[in-house]
């Protein structure tokens, strides 16, 4: 200990010098938007390309799994397509509104970074604004919902995962149509909680939960999860429902970013409504 102190005293000038230089650098980086941006952008590009490399290696090992999944997805899509054709034959007199058919565009992307162990998890994908991805778009995978685009650079985008404590997802119980809000509680990457389902409704274990139509991020009916247990305390008005998420966040590899063509229209209309409400108050 004495030696350490002696060592420090011998180099007191150098330590003070370092202290002042670090102070100056803090000033430099915190106050210069250009330098800050250049620094953080370049570091971002470096880290993103490094993550890309490592995920490429990992994906090579997971190829078998991914293949299986994609084959399953293909099969399901083929099935849907065939049933759609049949349906169209039956009801070809009812003209489908083309705008509703093409309301959502799906942009495939590869996950290059993902975490499930923090309270606020984010996912990075290898598509960005160059592939017409914008902030606020919903992200799903074959199994269910994944999250919402938080920010995007030219070639990469960050997604706020469903496993993020501030993320509320408007979801509904498919069987009875009741709408609630889904939130992750920060512990288990498989489980989340569904709130605001009123007490008079009958909720069963195993009920399917899908995304509701009350949002402009996800299409209605995207799979969210299944009910595992239902809790209600004495005089509360709402259930607290434990949900097993259908998406396995530990094994995410490919996701689809959803581009809602009418998002701006819907949002602006809704915000207008909210404005009207506030004024009338």
């Amino acid at each position: 200990m004495q030696k350490v102190i002696q060592f420090l005293i011998l180099r007191i000038n150098f330590i003070i010098f370092l202290f002042f230089e670090i102070l100056a650098l803090i000033l430099y980086f915190s106050n210069n938007p250009y330098q800050g941006a250049a620094f953080f952008n370049s570091s971002n590009a470096i880290s993103a390309s490094m993550m890309d490399f490592s995920s490429n290696t990992r994906h090579y090992i997971e190829l078998q799994d991914v293949n299986d999944k994609l084959a399953k997805e293909n099969a399901k899509l083929r099935f849907l397509l065939s049933s759609k054709i049949v349906q169209n034959d039956i009801s070809n007199r009812i003209k489908n509104d083309t705008s509703t058919i093409k309301k959502f565009n799906y942009i495939p992307a590869k996950v290059i970074n993902n975490s499930t162990d923090k309270y606020k998890n984010f996912i990075t994908i290898n598509k960005g604004s160059a592939d017409s991805i914008a902030v606020g778009m919903g992200v799903v995978c074959f199994d269910g919902i994944v999250g919402k685009v938080k920010s995007c650079s030219k070639n990469y985008a960050t997604i706020t995962s469903v496993l993020h404590q501030d993320m509320l997802i408007s979801s509904k119980l498919k069987r009875i149509g009741a709408i609630g809000a889904l939130r992750w509680d920060g512990n288990n990457a498989q489980m989340a909680k569904l709130f605001y389902i009123p007490r008079h409704l009958e909720v069963k274990k195993g009920d399917t939960i899908v995304s509701s139509e009350h949002n402009s991020v996800f299409p209605e009916g995207e799979m969210v999860g299944r009910v595992t247990s239902i809790n209600i305390k004495g005089d509360e008005n709402f259930y607290t429902i434990n949900v097993r998420l259908s998406t396995d966040f530990n094994k995410l590899s490919y996701v689809y970013v959803i581009k809602n063509k009418f998002k701006i229209e819907q949002d602006s209309l809704e915000s207008l409504n909210n404005l009207g409400k506030n004024e009338s108050k």
């Binding site: 000038n13 003070i16 002042f20 230089e21 650098l25 000033l27 430099y28």
Partner: peptide
Amino acid sequence: LLISFLVGFFVDLFYDTPGIHTFASV
């Protein structure tokens, strides 16, 4: 070192370049 830090900071305020002259002066 303290004097040079303060002087650099003072000059930086006028050049609108926070930290640069401070760093170089120290």
